[in-house]
Design a protein around this nucleic acid. Structure first.
Length: 271
DNA sequence: CCCGATTCCTGTAGGC
DNA sequence: TGCCTACAGGAATCGG
């Protein structure tokens, strides 16, 4: 389930292999991703040089000059760096062959991912224009969370996972950040105190930094560009641990459904 | 604007 | 062994 740390891990994994290289051939085997891959996708990529590899929220952005390539891994997407001619596997939807014998391959069983183009002439892209701040930016702070959450009745976990509030936190890291901040996931966002928000903003940054350092979290599907799993799973305090003792206080971790998603928390550590 | 429910999709796990 | 169902979830979209 690629959240910010997983996408950043993929970005770091592909950057040294694709930066500065020229796209020689593009193969689209399946256009039906989250949105259809544009009909002229291959034509607009071929011959372009990769000028930068960046990440915004959970999107990968490759600057190709005339266009920026937007890639999203959905929840089962993998972006692998391979050698040309690597055997095809099921759900290998997209191949980008670059100079120097590099093959960038998108595999995505659930097809929630996306491969789109953002023409240079357009100032913004609809998918990117309403995104909130990056969690590591100065804009994202306890005070920011406090002000934005006033009057909001939504559960703080949903608030945290709302990309208009802050980007990058999905189900796993929202749960872990709330644990570290000592806040129950079902609490109304508007009832958080200033101190709660300060701890929460710090916890979000902390958990994401640590997860990036571990190469992300692999539960089942996720792999970096080299196919290796992430190791943050070993550092999860609550996610997926319903019924198990809290690593901090020993109380049994509880699971409840918030916003149609499993949520996990420690009744002892979180109020 | 805000919020909750629904929707897309396939692999996997659990029940019988 | 095989069939069925529930579940996993990023995030757009829709209805209230």
């Amino acid at each position: 389930m690629p959240e910010l740390p997983e996408v950043e891990t993929v970005r770091r994994g592909i950057e040294p292999h694709v930066l500065g290289r020229t796209i020689e051939q593009v193969t689209v085997r399946e256009r039906r991703l989250r949105w259809p891959v544009p009909a002229d996708f291959a034509r607009r990529l071929e011959g372009r040089r990769v000028r930068s590899v960046e990440r915004r929220a959970k999107y990968l952005l490759l600057d190709l000059g005339e266009d920026r390539l937007i890639l999203h891994l959905g929840m089962s997407g993998r972006l692998l760096v391979l050698e040309p001619g690597h055997p095809l596997r099921k759900h290998d939807h997209l191949d980008v062959r670059l100079s120097g014998g590099v093959l960038l391959r998108l595999n995505d069983p659930r097809r929630f991912g996306a491969a789109l183009l953002w023409p240079r002439g357009q100032a913004s892209h609809p998918l990117l224009e309403n995104l909130g701040p990056e969690p590591f930016s100065d804009e994202f702070s306890g005070e920011y969370l406090f002000e934005l959450s006033r009057g909001r009745s939504a559960a703080v976990k949903n608030f945290l996972m709302d990309g208009r509030v802050v980007v990058g936190a999905g189900n796993i890291y929202a749960a872990e950040a709330l644990f570290r901040a000592g806040i129950r996931p079902g609490r109304a966002a508007g009832r958080l105190t200033r101190a709660d928000c300060a701890r929460l903003a710090a916890a979000v940054r902390e958990v994401l930094v640590e997860a990036v350092a571990q190469g992300g979290t692999t539960l089942r599907d996720f792999a970096g560009a080299d196919g290796a799993p992430g190791y943050f799973r070993q550092k999860l305090f609550v996610y997926g641990r319903a019924g198990e003792p809290c690593l901090r206080c020993g109380t049994a971790i509880k699971r409840l459904v918030i916003g149609q998603r499993s949520s996990f928390y420690c009744p002892g550590c979180q109020q």
